[in-house]
């Protein structure tokens, strides 16, 4: 059974991501760690669904993926602009 070692590996990755989210030290470490946790949670969910024979639940994993992006962008925009409703301003030397 291939699923058991995969699940163990994913849980270990999850624990490492959590350790980074706890330790920090900067906000970017935590934001990246939570982004990685979201991705690993998505993979873990997909593997669990295949393990229990319900691959149609993989839709849930897709929702996770979309929400993960929204959450990370919200955190980073807040950090840069300080307000979610405001438009960001271009800074000197900014190439966007």
């Amino acid at each position: 059974m291939i699923y058991a070692p995969v699940i163990v590996a994913l849980l270990a990755t999850l624990a490492l991501g959590l350790a980074r989210a706890f330790l920090g030290p900067t906000l970017f470490d935590r934001a990246l760690a939570v982004n990685a946790i979201g991705t690993v949670a998505m993979l873990l969910l997909a593997v669990l669904e295949f393990l229990t024979g319900r691959p149609e639940y993989t839709d849930l994993a897709l929702v996770y993926g979309l929400l993960n992006i929204v959450g990370t962008i919200a955190v980073l925009k807040f950090f840069r602009v300080g307000d979610l409703g405001k438009e960001g301003t271009l800074e000197e030397g900014d190439t966007r």
Binding site: V34, L44, Y57, L60, Y64, V75
Partner: peptide, 17 residues
């Protein structure tokens, strides 16, 4: 706030399982 997001992801995975 960032940690509660991680909490929600773990909770949702456990609920789906």
């Amino acid at each position: 706030v960032v940690l509660t997001t991680a909490y929600s992801f773990l909770m949702a995975t456990a609920l789906a399982a």
